[in-house]
């Protein structure tokens, strides 16, 4: 039975090594939501946030900037999606919920049931951008109706060539790329264009990864897709943004047109929701949110979003002042 003795230490060593590595971590703040701050003393505490993967980078950027100044504070960000984020927020597991759309009635009810009061704050702007291939000659501007013809559920299997959208377009086949149904971007686009959230044609190439949409559209002359403005900015050399006409003429997506709302209906505000009770009791949270709004321009730039207008920023600051 000699053999048996040789294997056991090896297995034990592996488990031991894993455990040792695990214990090697430096100590960090406690996981509780409580924060403490003496007068003039360094802030400490933990803030957890979850929610939209669209807004996640904003809160991450704000957290990173804040933590370089306040090293005692730990802020974490998860990206379970806007809906998933509200679920945790209304269970009291997070103090900040990132959302790419306003809270829904059933989510409100869930928060009410747990006695969670919240404050909505607009932290940046996003513009959904409809993109086509750089070499596409006929697409420059689409009306909301034309977008609806392209994307509505009834188009599934029926609207397959471009001349069905506009007779002046060539009869080439349409290839469509878009975000998957879990994405806030999908909810927003379908709501604004097709008139019903979640209503979309189903025979398009869906992807949760916007880079896949970029690759798809940049590789096919007759393709069309949509996603957040930042992805377009990053890939402006391979793609072309389609102007959108909502009845007041063609408007190209840009920081200006998104902020003043003229890039309608596809520009949208991005939100964070703050737990009011935590805001009152957790000094670190209060400082962080104040910092977030104060530095929104820097934050939006780091996360590649469109900063708030003067007016939006003032509203956000007033809302925070009202919280006390």
């Amino acid at each position: 039975m000699k053999i048996s003795r040789s294997g056991a230490p090896a297995a034990l060593a592996l488990v031991g090594a894993l455990t040792l590595t695990a214990c090697g971590g430096q100590q960090a703040g406690s996981d509780s939501a409580a924060g403490t701050a003496g007068a003039g003393a360094a802030l400490s505490g933990t803030i957890s946030s979850d929610g939209s993967s669209t807004v996640g980078p904003l809160t991450s950027a704000a957290a990173e900037l804040f933590m370089t100044e306040n090293t005692g504070v730990n802020i974490t960000v998860g990206t379970s999606g806007t809906g998933g984020g509200f679920k945790k927020f209304c269970e009291g597991q997070t103090q900040v919920s990132n959302a790419s759309r306003p809270i829904k009635d059933e989510e409100k009810a869930a928060c009410d049931a747990k006695g969670i009061e919240y404050q909505e704050i607009v932290v940046a702007n996003d513009a959904l951008t409809v993109v086509a291939n750089k070499d596409n000659g006929f697409l420059t501007c689409l009306t909301v109706e034309e977008l609806k013809t392209l994307w509505e559920p009834a188009a599934t299997g029926k609207v397959t060539t471009w001349n069905q959208v506009d007779p002046s377009f060539p009869s080439d086949d349409i290839t469509l790329y878009g975000p998957g149904t879990d994405s806030g971007t999908f909810d927003y686009f379908t709501d604004e264009i097709n008139g019903e959230e979640g209503a979309s044609r189903t025979d398009y190439e869906p992807s949760e990864d916007d880079n896949v949409i970029v690759q798809g559209v940049s590789g096919d002359k007759n393709a069309l897709g949509y996603f957040g403005f930042t992805y377009f900015e990053e890939n402006a050399d391979a793609l072309k943004a389609i102007e959108v006409d909502s009845g007041k003429g063609c408007v190209a997506p840009s920081s200006e047109t998104a902020r003043d709302g003229s890039y309608a209906p596809l520009s949208r505000p991005l939100f964070i929701y703050i737990d009011k009770k935590a805001y009152a009791s957790n000094a670190a949270l209060k400082e962080f949110i104040g910092f977030y709004v104060e530095n929104e321009a820097k934050v939006a730039e780091a996360a590649r979003y469109i900063p708030l207008s003067e007016e939006q920023k003032k509203t956000a600051q007033d809302e925070l002042t009202a919280l006390g």
Partner: peptide, 20 residues
């Protein structure tokens, strides 16, 4: 783990079984 809400932005080392 994504379903459980694994985080994507953590700037501290995990420090226990109840750590994020």
């Amino acid at each position: 783990l994504l379903l459980l809400g694994g985080l994507v932005f953590v700037k501290f080392d995990p420090n226990g079984l109840l750590s994020g």
